[in-house]
Lab assay of single mutants.
Amino acid sequence: MPSETPQAEVGPTGCPHRSGPHSAKGSLEKGSPEDKEAKEPLWIRPDAPSRCTWQLGRPASESPHHHTAPAKSPKILPDILKKIGDTPMVRINKIGKKFGLKCELLAKCEFFNAGGSVKDRISLRMIEDAERDGTLKPGDTIIEPTSGNTGIGLALAAAVRGYRCIIVMPEKMSSEKVDVLRALGAEIVRTPTNARFDSPESHVGVAWRLKNEIPNSHILDQYRNASNPLAHYDTTADEILQQCDGKLDMLVASVGTGGTITGIARKLKEKCPGCRIIGVDPEGSILAEPEELNQTEQTTYEVEGIGYDFIPTVLDRTVVDKWFKSNDEEAFTFARMLIAQEGLLCGGSAGSTVAVAVKAAQELQEGQRCVVILPDSVRNYMTKFLSDRWMLQKGFLKEEDLTEKKPWWWHLRVQELGLSAPLTVLPTITCGHTIEILREKGFDQAPVVDEAGVILGMVTLGNMLSSLLAGKVQPSDQVGKVIYKQFKQIRLTDTLGRLSHILEMDHFALVV
């Protein structure tokens, strides 16, 4: 994948999101292997301009796509893939009243899908469409860049269908997702969380590099694949309309690839034109409109599966009536509230959605109805927002919020430890010299600072030695090549209790 991002070429006709291997024109390309080798690009942008032909009021008969309808489940399912879809609609009884809503608040519980998330729908649909058009064949390999849930859905379907599955996901995604993927037989590649989507090191860039190296491999490409919004247009939206008897006044959905909100909203605009569509985008993402909503100094966020630093091709923002931004604290607070007060075992993005819903639905009156999409299960986040310690460490809970008995030293300040200034190293000294210094002084790690004293990161003896043994660096290389740029900081005025929580999850903390 090139470091400079080429513009994806656009073909003359058809839909841009065809499933299957992508040609340089962004659509299915038939021909000899030699032709494909000559024409197939190194990668295709996940934010390529959409060429979708959908228009409100256009006859369904003019759609270029294969459409399906929700099917009634048999008493005995032939395999677990038949437990994807037909998820329950559940009334939220307490939270709406707590925040003064007059309307009825309903939750579409997508964590009841077989793999635990709304992404099971698009995973199965992308595979079925690729099999139907002859792209996927027995023994082929599926590769997908994902925040985890699409990966789980694909790995689940691949396990049943017999495909090899490789999932490329950023490091910030939970260990629970990784464990589930491994249990399903998927191979996992992790990428830096802070890598831009168009960087060769991003999950998108690495996935395309693997595709170019592995024979008979395919990126189904949830960011561009029409099967993504079509899955929701054909099934999720129809289920909502049936469950609500066609009567709903507002739908609120958090947005990642945009397939969920695009597919549902398009069908609702056709069948229930008075329904307002509300999009939820986390602070630090750029999906919301108008652009002024996205202006923030924050560039990272903890909530998973929603928000991006690019506009995915499948996201149709014209069908969203209003956007709201959400933050991590309210997302996790509301997710825990949904679990504790409503018994809905949902993930953090569901918290984002409901946090926005109780604001947006203030305009609705008694007798009206708001539906929220709860995308995934708490299963993926047992060591994250479900953990009091994690919430404390991230600053989303305060010590006084917890009532468990603490040891005698818990409320003492870090400054009472009488710490001395640490050994520091410059980023320009060599790895070999740094190892000598650390061994001589008896230290395992040291902060790396520039000549102005600005902290650049941390270097550890173990990481340097393993990097040297693996051949990633040489003793003569500058130590700046092996620094940890993500590390926890703590102030002298913070409590030892807070430091204790940090050290339970990290090997060190830097006192500043």
Rank of each mutant, 00 (worst) to 15 (best):
G134L: 06
K75H: 04
E29A: 13
I127F: 11
D221P: 03
S63C: 14
L136E: 03
P170T: 04
I44Q: 15
D120A: 13
C103R: 03
G259H: 00
L156S: 01
K30G: 10
A130S: 11
R58G: 06
I214R: 06
N228H: 03
T150E: 02
W54M: 07
D133N: 13
K97R: 11
R182C: 12
P78K: 08
P2E: 14
T53K: 06
E128W: 08
V204N: 07
I127G: 01
N149A: 04
G205R: 11
I76A: 06
S217Y: 04
S73T: 15
S3T: 08
E171G: 02
E104D: 14
A265W: 06
A157T: 13
R58N: 09
L154M: 05
T13M: 08
G148K: 02
K75L: 12
K30E: 11
W54P: 06
M250W: 00
L154T: 01
G185P: 00
G20D: 10
R182E: 07
N225V: 02
D35E: 15
G258T: 00
V206L: 14
E29G: 13
K172C: 02
P74R: 08
W208K: 12
R266C: 07
N113G: 10
T87A: 13
M173F: 02
T141Q: 07
I240D: 00
A265C: 02
P33F: 03
A158D: 02
S19L: 05
P16L: 13
S117A: 06
N225H: 03
M89G: 03
N93V: 03
P64V: 02
P21Y: 02
E62M: 15
D249W: 02
I76V: 04
P46T: 01
G116E: 07
L268M: 06
E34F: 11
K137F: 12
E187I: 09
F111T: 05
A237N: 06
A24Q: 13
L268Q: 01
E104G: 09
R91T: 10
T191V: 04
P33H: 08
L220K: 00
Q55M: 11
E40S: 10
K108G: 04
S61G: 02
S117I: 03
I80F: 09
G31Q: 03
D86T: 10
D47C: 03
V168Y: 04
K211P: 09
K30I: 05
R58S: 05
P21Q: 02
H67M: 03
